[in-house]
Each structure stands twice: as C-alpha cells, then as structure tokens.
Design a protein around this nucleic acid. Structure first.
Length: 571
RNA sequence: CGAGGUGUAGCGCAGUUUGGUAGCGCGCUUGGUUCGGGACCAAGAGGCCAUGGGUUCAAAUCCCGUCACCUCGACCA
C-alpha cells in the first residue's frame, strides 16, 4: 500500500473530545471516523487489524471444533418472544417495523438465532457436543457510548454457542474455551489481562468468567487477591469483614440529630461515633412496581452492591423515590420500622451488631445503642455489600485489592435456559427427549483492538504488536525525488510483497521528520529507511517501534532481516 | 434518563462580554528554495458561524425552542 493513496486523515492535533489514549490516537492516526454517537467507520488500517484479530480468534475456535456460521442481524419479534427476551430486555435492543408492519429487532446477541438454527438440524445425542460460532455485527443501543471503540453501539463480535448432553461435558468444554481465550489474548499481544468470576446477568446460567484488561480507564471494577489469585467482578466479589469487638449492650436511647441525614453528617454531629458503628438504610423501588419500597440495611461504612441485591430480590431495582411514602428519608432505622409494602433486606454486616447508631424513623432523630436481637431481629441476612480494598480474601485471608478493567471477552455456562424455552430437544441413549445444555462465549473485536492500543501506545502514538499490526513494515523513502532512491525503494517494495511481508510505503515528497512522525503515530512495528545517505554506504536502516532499537544492515540483506524479525515476533 | 459543557473551514482554536465586511495555526492546491525527527517563501482554494424561530436598520454575537457531540452519574448479554 502506498501511503499517498491511503484514505484516512492523520492529524498533529488531538481531537479535543477524546479523553483516552486509544480513542485519541486512533482518530489522529486516521484509523477510525465517527459517524454517529457510538457508531464508527473503520479505515483500511483498522480493518486490517480487525481482520487479523478475527483470524486469530477463528483459528482458536476452529481448533475447538467450532463451526463458523452467520446468523442474521435483523430478526423477527417472534424469535425473541420464544425465549422471553423480547420483553425482558430493555431499550438496549433496537426494535422497529418492516414495510409490512411486522415487529423486528436488531441482534444484540444470538442465543435465539443459534438455537433456532440448531434445533431442527440436531435430533440425536450422537450429534452432540458441537459448537457453532460467528464473527458478525451486533447492535446495542447503549445509553452512553464512550472512549472511541471501547464502548460503542455497533460493533463486531465473535459469539460462540456450544451444546452438550451433560453438565460435566459442558464444564470440560468450558475449560478448553477458557484456555483458548487465554491464548487468543496473548496472541493478539495483550499482556495485563486476567479472567475474573462474573455475574451472569440477563444471560441466565450459573458459572461465568469475564476476561479483563487491567487498566485505570476500565469501566468495570475487579476485586483481586494478590496472594491466591482469586479474582472477581465487583458485582459478585465477596470478602470477610473483620470481627467487631465484643461489647455489652447498653440501653437504647433517642438522640436529636437535626438535619443530619447522611452517615458522615450523623457521625460528625454526634462527635465520637465511627462510621462502622452505624447502620444505614438504602432504598430502592422494584422496577415496574413503584408501590413497593425495598429498604436495604447495611453497616454505615459499607456500600450496597446493587447487582447482589437484585439477585437476592430476583427483581430489577431502581433508586427509590421516597417523597411520597411513609419512610422518613435520612432517618430510617431497623428498630421500630413500620410500613406497608416494605421489603426489608439486611446485609450480613448488620447481623449480631451491638450498640449501633441508626435512624429513629422520625424526623431529626436517630437512635443510639441499637442492638440486633433486642431492638430489632434479623431472621435472614444476605451478602449485599461491595468489597472494599483491604478486606480479607474469602479463600486465603489475604488483603484484597480493587482495580479497574475493560471487559474484552466472556464465557458463560448457560444451562438449558434457551433450549428449554425454545423447545430444543434431542433424544438421549434411552430414547428420551432432553434439552441440551449450552455454553456461550463472546469476544468484542473492536474493543480488543482498542484495548491493545490502550495498553501499548506511547507518547509518540500507537504501537501495534506484530501479530495484529496493519502492516509489518513502514518503508520510508527519504528524498523520493531522487530517481535512484525511488527506484531502489520500489524494488524493495516489490520484493517484500513477493516474500509475504506486508508493507506500507511512504512515497510522499515530505521531509524525513514528517514521515517518521507518521510512522510512529500509526504504530507500524518496523521502519525501513531508504535514503541517499544509506545507499551511499550500501546499507538500509531498520528501526523497531516497540523498543526504539536501530539495526543497520547491508542493503541486500535487509528484506531477509525484516522477514526474520517478523517471524520471530509473531510465533 | 439526571447534572454540566461544547457546536465557527478537514483538524485544533480565536471572535460572542460591549451586535456593524468571518479570522488564526495545522492540513490542502500551484510555483520556487530546502531535505535524516512534523522545513521555508510566495500565491491560492475552502465557512448558510449546528438548526428553527424571534428582537433589530443590522445577529456568529442578544432572546426562545430544537438537534448533535463531549464529560460525570444512572443504565448496560
């Protein structure tokens, strides 16, 4: 490819609205162009990277006996009603009518399509297990896309679906996919990633993992044990709290606290009270049922984990509107709390507490020395709290750390949610119809690309690992107006292409510095300079983008040297 | 969906306070001089100032509405 003909504008100045490296640099290097909020066009270099990532994924999926298919982007409402997700999924799924007035949806995931595809074709246990996958466009109408390709509405995803006769078989296959995912992310050049236990959310199913790139810009929060390696998404992470000191219960008393409502205000008002000696109430409404209010009690220094609370309730929740009800916002406490339509949930941290401060359920007053078992009684408590750094690992007891990550892939043990709801059965060896057990496995291609960019870019620009670089070599002609130089460079260009080296030639009549800067910005791993100076000495100069190392070699040998470096860095 | 911010040439921005001929840098075109880390000179091209409605002799500028984009939050297989 000649850079003079490459469509995609490279700029010296960063777009003012891009706040993360990969977003800003991919725009500056002419890789991506915004079309609409969360919707991008990819220029040739980005498309080449995407294709290389896809091919690596494809190889690994094929090695797992995967069968590549394509499912449709547009599907009819009826298909999604079979699984019940036409109504259970919210605004994230785009719905529209076709010209005949039929309800259609844009695919945001393809469990329904995969089951619909497989259920008629597969009739016998002898055809299982199998895995079908696709690499295709998804559309999810995100509320707030951000960060360039990190969070978008339209994107390319590899999604795979496996079908098994037994849980054991699924588990064994799941392990193989897990290992394949680790290989995929390593092969595309990602370094600082981990697999974490995750919430299976609307997907259904039980066991699931997310593969996360650890980075401060990540939107997900991950709890990691530095000692035993246990790592979980914050949504499901658990920890052990330090035991409270044993205390004798003191008589409960009412204290005036005026306008103090938040824990910080109350502890400041009362002077000598620590936040962990308080109980706070956090209120929610059940989604679609605004009459009922969920009151979650938790120790004052801790935070409610809404994902866990949702699971305990089995319902979706939204922040409560307390203006209309009988609750006294800011003064809610477990002792003496009365009200119709209340759903009270206690966090484990409140169980067995002694001499706590909590709301008195009337304006301007709190209670001191509230003691569980005497002033109120917990029949059942749950873990509905967020883990904080420094709390103890539930497995080994070491102090947990909290980091941010970008989710770049996930794997789920789905179970029979879709095969049951959509009526997919096969005959087992006893001739009995059973629903196959499913797993599903996703990787976002664009997000993986942006994540690698984020991890490898430096102050000069992008910096692609050889395995996914848009081109291996940036052939930089200094003095392209010199016919001898130009001729030599063009000969090299042809030779490299014959030998399978992917090369981008800078044939422009620009200064050396200008070209070097573009090369660095685009992040091409190797730079080959052909110049009058080098030709005079019959040498060529190779510069390695990632290390800054420069190699001077005899002109005749440079293509072979490049070939060798490329092969060494892809293995 | 809530709060805040921004829309002026392909990109980055000034001009808006105090209404009066649409500007700068980069990039682009042409010619010339340069030529190993974003060269220089000269001459050009390119804008319905997001959009709709007001106010005014006159609106990028003042008023009202709408849209788009960005940030934080909510939401998110």
């Amino acid at each position: 490819m000649l850079i003079s003909k490459l469509v995609g504008e490279r700029t010296k100045t960063a777009p003012s609205d891009a706040v993360i490296k990969s977003h800003s640099l991919m725009i500056r290097a002419g890789y991506i162009k915004l079309v609409s909020n969360g919707i991008w066009s990819l220029a040739m270099p980005a498309k080449r990277i995407a294709r290389k990532i896809e091919n690596i994924i494809r190889e690994e999926m094929d090695a797992l006996e995967g069968q590549e298919c394509t499912f449709p982007v547009v599907m009819p409402r009826e298909l999604w009603e079979e699984s019940g997700r036409y109504t259970s999924i919210g605004d994230e799924m785009v719905r529209f009518k076709d010209r005949f007035g039929r309800d259609m949806v844009l695919g945001m995931t393809h469990e329904e399509a995969a089951v619909q595809f497989a259920r008629d074709a597969v009739n016998s246990y002898q055809q299982l297990p199998f895995m079908i996958y696709q690499i295709q466009t998804k559309f999810r109408d995100e509320g707030r896309p951000r960060g360039g390709l990190i969070r978008v509405r339209e994107f390319t995803m590899k999604d795979a679906y496996s079908f098994h006769m037994s849980k054991e078989d699924l588990e064994a296959y799941y392990e193989r996919v897990y290992a394949a995912y680790e290989r995929i992310f390593k092969r595309i050049g990602m370094k600082n990633f981990i697999a974490v236990k995750s919430d299976s959310g609307m997907m259904g199913g039980s066991i699931s993992h997310e593969f996360m790139l650890l980075t401060p810009i990540g939107e997900d929060t991950i709890v990691i044990c530095p000692k035993c390696g246990l790592s979980s998404n914050m949504e499901v992470a658990t920890s052990i709290l330090n035991d409270a000191e044993k205390e004798e219960p003191l008589p409960m008393e009412e204290v005036f606290t005026g306008a103090a409502k938040e824990i910080r205000e109350v502890t400041e008002y009362l002077g000598d009270i620590a936040a962990d000696k308080t109980i706070k109430a956090v209120c929610y409404n059940i989604k679609g049922d605004s009459l009922r209010t969920v009151v979650a009690f938790i120790r004052g220094d801790l935070e409610i984990n809404e994902a866990k609370l949702k699971k305990v309730l089995g319902r979706d929740i939204v922040p409560a509107n307390l203006n209309s009800g009988e609750l006294v916002a800011g003064n809610i406490g477990p002792a003496g709390l009365k009200g119709d339509n209340l759903v009270i949930v206690y966090d484990n941290s409140v169980k067995g507490t002694v001499n706590m401060v909590s709301g008195a359920n009337k304006p301007e007053y709190h209670l001191k020395n509230v003691t569980e078992g005497r002033d109120f009684t917990i029949e059942e408590s749950f873990d509905i709290r967020k883990v904080k750094p420094g709390e103890k690992c539930p497995v080994c007891g070491a102090e947990l750390e909290v980091e941010n990550g970008i989710e770049i892939g996930n794997i789920f043990q789905l179970g029979t949610k879709y095969t049951e709801s959509m009526g997919m059965t096969v005959l087992n060896s006893d001739g009995k119809a059973v629903c196959p057990i499913m797993g599903c496995y996703g990787i976002g291609v664009g997000r993986a690309m942006a994540s690698v960019a984020e991890e490898t870019a430096d102050e000069k620009g992008l910096n692609w690992p050889m395995a996914i670089a848009p081109w291996h070599v940036y052939l930089c002609i200094i003095r392209s107006d010199d016919p001898v130089v130009k001729e030599k460079a063009c000969a090299l260009y042809d030779e490299m292409q014959k030998k399978g080296i992917e090369v981008l030639m800078d044939d422009r009549a620009a200064s050396a510095g200008y070209k070097f800067a573009d090369c660095d910005l685009m992040g091409i791993p190797l730079r080959l300079v052909v110049s009058p100076r080098a030709l005079e000495n019959d040498v060529a100069e190779i510069k390695i983008r990632s290390t800054g190392e420069t190699i001077t070699c005899p002109f005749e040998e440079c293509v072979d040297r490049l070939k060798e470096i490329i092969e060494r860095s892809i293995e």
